[in-house]
Structure formats: C-alpha cells, structure tokens
Design a binder for these strands. Structure first.
Length: 509
RNA sequence: GCCCUCCUAGCUCAAUUGGCAGAGCAGCUGACUCUUAAUCAGCGGGUUGUAGGUUCGAGUCCUACGGGGGGCACCA
C-alpha cells in the first residue's frame, strides 16, 4: 500500500499549509466569510421563518414588466446557482428543492449595506430573499429583492453551471452535490418517496399495519442468500443482518396481526451490479385468510398507485439501459398466465414430457447431465419465456418442485400457488399462498439445509419459526416487492445506484 | 472472482505518430442599473489517479496497484 503523501492535494489535511489551486478557491471563499463577519453578519445564518417554496412563488400572478402596480410580496430561501452582475445590478438564480427563480438585486433598491453583502455572494451560498414578484424587461418572472438575509456560506465551489456534475462516481459519493446541482436527481429521489408514501397509504387503506422486524438476527432466514455478519459485544454473539423480512412477519400472523407489512432494508452479501446493491428495500405484506389471488389484486393496486403518485401515466416508456427503452402499458387489469401455458406457447414442452425437456435444453446448449428435469424446465422458462414477457404479466401456478415453501394448489399437488410479476424480463413482485403446515415446513427446511453448499454454511434451522407455525398460522397470502427496481422502472433510471441515495461504494482514497 | 474500458485544473472537456500540458465555465482585477450559459479587457490556476519501467524524450507505450463504468459469474 502506498503511504499517504502530502502531494495528494485532494484529501483534506487539516493543519497542513494550503498548497494547490483547490485551496486557492477555498481560500478566496474563506476570506469572503471574514468580510461577511466584518459586516456584522453571521455567515452561518439563523432560523428563517415563513419563506415560500419557489414552485409556489412561481405559481403567483405578478404584474407585467414596467407596471406601476406592485407585485405580491414574497420570501424565498435557497442556493445561489447562477449570478450575473451588471454594474450596480445583480441577477441571481436561487434554487430550492421545488425549483429555481431569478432574483434582481439593485444597489439603489436595496441600499448600500445590503449591496455590500450582495457583492460577497458566491455561487453555492444559501440566501434568503424578501422582495416583490414581477417581471423584468425581457419578461422573466423575477423576485425584486428588498431585503437580503445571509443563511449559509459555501466554502467550496459548486460544479460548473452549464454541464453540472456528470461524473457518475462523484454523483453517488457526493449525493449532496448531485441533489443540489441536478434537478432531475432531486426529482428522482422525491419520486421515490412518493412511491413509498403511496404504498403505505394503499396498504393502510386496506387495513394493513406497518411493523418493524429485527434487522440483526441470530438466524438469517426467509431467503437463500449469503448474509453479512456482525457481532454483539456484550452478548459475545455472532449476528447476521437480515436477508428477508418474511419469517418475522409470519410470526406476527401467528400472533394475530392479520394484515402486516414491512417496508424495510435487507442485506445480501452478493456482488454489485446495475441491478444489485448489497442493501436494498423490500416490501413484504402478509394477509391472513388470503391467498395469492388476493396478493395479485394488492400488487396491481400498489403499482398503479405508485404510477399515479409519479405521473399517472399508465402507458409509459421504460428505460432498460442507457440506450434502450421500450413502451409498456400498465393499464389494469394485467393478464394472468399460467406457467404451464406459457411453457407450451414459447418452449413447446410440458412438465410431463421429460424427454422433450431434455432435448429442448440440449438444443439450447444448456448443461443437461446430472440435472433433474424440473430444474431444466425452470431454466427453459428463463431462457425461452422470460425474455418474451413484455408485461406487465402475472405468471401464476409454478411447478411445485420449484417452490418448496409454497402451498400446493388444492387438488393439484404438482402446482404451487405462486405468482411472479414480470415487466420486460424484470421480476417486480413475487407472491405465494404461504405454507402454514409446520410439519411440512420443517421437513422442507431440513431438505434445503442438506442440499446447500459448503460456502453457504450460514443457513440454520429456525426452530422458533417452526414452533410459531405449530401454534397455527392462518392460511395467508404473502407478497414481496423489490422497491428499488420498481423505482428504476417508474422513474426511468437504468441503474439501481441512481435510485439509492447512498449506494455502497469502496471508501474514498 | 474473471474480461473489457476509463481516470488530464474546482467543474466540463481537448492534446496528431511518443515531441513545449490547452480551452470553456468557475475564480481574481477592472468596466457596465434589465441580464438569460450576459458581455468586454486583463490575470492566476496542473506531480495528467499512484508507484515503477521502456525511451534522448511519456498525458500518450509496458507492468503493478487504487478508484470508477460496462459485461460475465454469483444471486428460492
């Protein structure tokens, strides 16, 4: 490893002499900070009440340019993103999280000492503006400042005014800069919170209560994934970060909470990609005395609600990658197609035709030896059917062998009551009629434990969960939705990193 | 973990075959009371991610390392 060296001027070295240009820009701003203080003004500001959102101000009516009529009095607060000075006049662009508006500051209009302050404004400073709303000679809606309030000094220069911050790494690392420079990024993350709010509202309207399961668990269950390991000192206990929400929510069903959901973070110790972040947000919802059909209705309501929260467009174009987008129509109801039917249509094989499955798999170049026919059947689905599913489409009734933890269809034990929602090859939701037979559950767990590989040695038998089931869990429908991927889809961001405020990155330097 | 690729001023980007590291924005000084990426004049700003190597000479070629991006693998 290289030792940190003084010439690595990018990392701040407190106490070391400022050496390079980066420091010069900062130094200039520090000097201005001193000048602001010399004016008797606190450069770090104070409470600033009753300001209006810029978007709200933009919605007001204001007199046209040159009118004798005084416009409405307004008060805004925000960041200076642009400054054009012209002699004894400044034009600023001031941005808050709702939008941006022009501010006019004239020396003769504000007076000498505010003018002195305005001379010290830098791009990136936070200011409060009192003024009247009107239009300039060129017709632009403008706040004509009457009073300036300094709210906070920016000691670092913001990115360039025209191109902004484009470097994807810096945008993720310094999300704060990304948010205040790139309005589309702000819109994306506010869109994400609207989607979450819509989910909570709809679930609440349907009688679901939000609960919080444990994030640190002695046994990380509910999915097959490698967990993160952590340690509790006082108990001297190895703990795992949860990989799913499922098993604790089901315990609550046993406890009598009939409709529960959790919108929570789960952690999986896996690779990072365009579609994977090690921590991500899941919705899981469980409805006592329901089944997977009830969950399909709920899924449709949730996603339609999310669309309405974003822009209300059911017919939308979704971005698959930087240079590929496709139209998708979310107008409900969405088709429900059985797994077997889709396999017949696209792969031309049925589950019972094992010879056909094997020859078809061989045809595609899949490894056939040593695999059970049902595994190949699943692989054929992934290869031949999933790419064809433009969606949104519910794929229902999976081969039971592929979903050991799902309740079988009454009178058809070879069929599992499960659906997955697909949109253009992306799996948006996964739901079951939950297995509530503790004896069957236990034996399936044991079988699963036997089959696992050496390096997956994290999985353990969750005896308490089995005990809970033995107290009788109601028959129930359960649903899982990957929130991050839904956000990618509805907010048109092809990379999961762009819908997670602080995605995992290697530490800087 | 593997393969490909990128890293140049605070930001956005140039730099011919290996031949003096440049521009715009931002910054500083000055002019300007209705600008729109304001304009005009002038000035400063760099260990080209890091460490080695090849070479008379490396931003450019080679090796290793760091970080990013894309893909593969992993991923009920």
């Amino acid at each position: 490893m290289n030792e940190p060296r003084p010439e690595s001027s990018h990392s701040e070295q407190p106490g070391e002499p400022a050496a390079a240009s980066a420091f010069d820009l900062e130094k200039v701003r520090e000097e201005k900070l001193g000048k602001i203080q010399a004016l008797g003004i606190d450069p770090w500001g104070t409470r600033f009440d009753d300001h209006q959102a810029v978007a709200q101000v933009r919605g007001l009516t204001a007199p046209p340019s040159g009118s004798a009529e005084a416009g409405p009095a307004v008060r805004i607060a925000g960041r200076i993103t642009l400054r054009r000075t012209q002699g004894k006049v400044h034009f600023l662009q001031v941005r808050d999280w709702t939008g941006q508006i022009q501010v006019f500051i004239g020396k003769n209009q504000v007076g000498d000492s505010p003018w002195e302050l305005a001379q010290l404004f830098d791009l990136g400073d936070l200011v409060g503006i009192d003024g009247t709303l009107g239009h300039t000679k060129t017709g632009e809606l403008t706040v004509f400042a009457t009073k300036l309030t300094f709210l906070s000094k920016s000691l670092l220069p913001p990115p360039e005014k025209w191109h902004g911050l484009t470097d994807v790494e810096t945008r993720s690392r310094q999300r704060y800069v990304d948010l205040f420079t790139n309005p589309e990024s702000m819109a994306t993350f506010l869109g994400r919170t609207r989607i979450l709010a819509a989910f909570r509202r709809i679930l609440g309207e349907r009688g679901f209560v939000e609960v919080e399961g444990p994030t640190m668990q002695a046994i990380a269950g509910g999915a097959a994934a490698r967990p993160f390991i952590t340690h509790h000192n006082a108990l001297d206990l190895e703990l795992y970060l949860r990989i799913a929400l499922e098993l604790h929510l089901k315990r609550l069903l046993v406890g009598g909470m009939e409709r529960v959901f959790e919108l929570g973070r789960v952690f999986r110790n896996e690779g990072i990609s365009r579609k994977h972040n090690p921590e991500f947000t899941m919705l899981e919802a469980y409805q006592a005395y329901g089944d997977y059909h009830a969950m399909m209705d709920l899924t449709e309501a949730l996603i339609c609600g999310a669309i309405n929260a974003v822009d209300g467009e059911y017919k939308r174009t979704i971005t698959l990658s930087a240079d590929a987008s496709v139209p998708v129509d979310f107008t409900p109801p969405w088709p429900r197609r059985s797994y077997a039917e889709l396999m017949l249509e696209y792969a031309r094989v049925s589950r019972s035709d094992e010879a056909g499955i094997r020859s078809k798999a061989a045809e595609l170049g899949l490894t056939v030896e040593g695999k059970e026919a049902v595994v190949l059947f699943g692989e054929l689905f992934e290869e031949l059917v999933e790419p064809k599913l433009e969606g949104p489409v519910f794929v229902i009734d999976y081969p039971a062998e592929l979903c050991p933890l799902t309740k079988r269809k009454a009178g058809a034990p070879e069929i599992a009551e499960r659906f997955e929602l697909f949109v253009h090859g992306m799996e948006l939701a996964n739901a079951y009629t939950e297995l509530n037979d503790p004896l069957l559950q236990e034996s399936l767990f044991r079988k699963q434990l036997q089959g696992q590989r050496e390096d997956d040695s994290m999985a353990k038998m969750d005896d308490d969960f089995i005990r809970a089931l033995k107290h009788a869990m109601p028959p129930a429908g359960g649903l899982g939705v990957g929130i991050d991927r839904l956000c990618m889809l509805l907010l048109n961001r092809p990379n999961i990193r762009d819908v997670i405020l602080f995605p995992l990155l290697r530490p800087e330097v």
